[in-house]
Simulated scan of single mutants.
Amino acid sequence: MKFSFSLGLVPLLMLSLHAGSAVAQDASYPNKPITVLVGYPPGGSTDLTGRAVADQLAKKLGVPVVVENVGGAGGAIAAMRATRAPADGYTLFVGANNEIAINRLITPATVKYSYQDFTPIGLVASQPMVLVASPSTGIKDTNEFLTTVQGKPGRFSYGSSGIGTALHLAGEMVKEQGGLFLTHIPYRGVGPLTTDLLGGTLEYGVFVLSSGLPLIRSGKVVALGVTEKTRSPAAPDIPALAEIPKLKNMDISVWFALMAPPKLPTPVLTRLRAALNEILQTPEFRKTLEAAGSTIAPLDVDMPRFLADETAKYQKVVDFAKIKE
């Protein structure tokens, strides 16, 4: 009996030692380099955001923070890798709504994770998209756009950087709310989209604001309105589409969030959230992102609710447009 009792204590003792070790590791976090995954090649808005976050995290946490670009599948490869990484706080993910929420709605057969498979640390920033017209159309504002397109259903097209992107969804939201019949033309990036707009072979397009502003400022395209509910501080002279009564519910943006693998220990999550809140208030960080056309997120956004609300919004647009790849 004594021998059996001793054997029964062994697993309990091992569990206790393991729990004590885990608590100690959590308390000492971080004590080695952190990797931040980004789902796109260097140079884009998600990469810029990820690098700005990584730079400031290194300063706040006192350990090296390295960005690893893992491109492919519209950011889904990096996102999936993040959901499967050890939940120790040493692998993080900076992603946009495309790879966190939208991809799953468009390609459920291949994207095997959802936003619920992350531990959300916090929202970083957002950036509106902007609906533009080719100068060849002669369109100067949103009212003219609505009147013209409604007058000739199916005659006009708009372009985006690809099927199922936030830009595509923004265009479909305009169609839904405006009661418009516009044909969507998917492009492989903003380069060919820009070429066709400037050449007059495409009437309308949707850009991320930071990509569209140089074209707008130079007069190469005409800005009709930004897609967020209110005007952007980066371009206060461009109206919000929602200022038009028919489009009053337009509110969609490209947003960026810092995420971690599921089941992140509470002490590690608390440490990372505190660091992110400090970062969002850092002048250097704010200047970097605002110069790129982004608006810094409010502190302590209720991320589970935010992600659920955003995904429901995207699902409605996907269902309306019957978007599938």
Rank of each mutant, 00 (worst) to 15 (best):
I77E: 06
A85E: 05
E99L: 07
A79R: 10
I121S: 04
E144R: 13
G138C: 11
S134C: 07
G50P: 02
G95A: 12
L146I: 10
G89Y: 03
I121P: 00
N97V: 06
S114K: 12
V65Y: 03
R84E: 11
N103R: 12
K60R: 08
Y90F: 09
F145A: 06
E68C: 11
V124H: 02
Y90Q: 03
S134Y: 09
G138F: 13
A73D: 14
N98T: 08
G75C: 02
A76R: 01
G95D: 11
G122S: 08
T83H: 01
R51W: 07
I106G: 03
D55F: 09
E99C: 12
A82Y: 12
Q56H: 11
D55M: 12
P86W: 00
F145H: 04
G89M: 04
K60P: 07
V124C: 01
A76D: 04
T83G: 09
T49R: 01
G138R: 13
D55H: 14
D88M: 02
N98A: 05
T49K: 01
I139A: 09
D141I: 04
K60F: 04
G95I: 03
T147K: 08
G72I: 01
S136G: 14
A52D: 04
D88F: 03
A54S: 07
K59N: 09
K60A: 15
Q116H: 00
A96C: 10
K60L: 11
A101G: 14
N143D: 14
R104T: 09
A79F: 08
A85K: 02
V132T: 02
T142A: 10
A73L: 10
G72N: 01
V111K: 06
P128C: 06
F145T: 00
I121W: 03
P108V: 13
A109I: 10
G138V: 13
A85S: 03
G72L: 06
A87T: 08
K59T: 10
V130S: 02
T110D: 15
A52I: 03
I77K: 10
N103S: 15
G62S: 08
R51I: 00
A76C: 06
L48K: 01
G72E: 11
T49S: 09
K112N: 15
P64V: 13
S136P: 09
T148C: 12
A109E: 15
A85F: 05
A133P: 03
A54R: 00
I100P: 03
V66R: 04
G72Y: 01
A78F: 07
T148Q: 14
A85N: 02
A78G: 10
A82W: 06
R84G: 09
G62D: 10
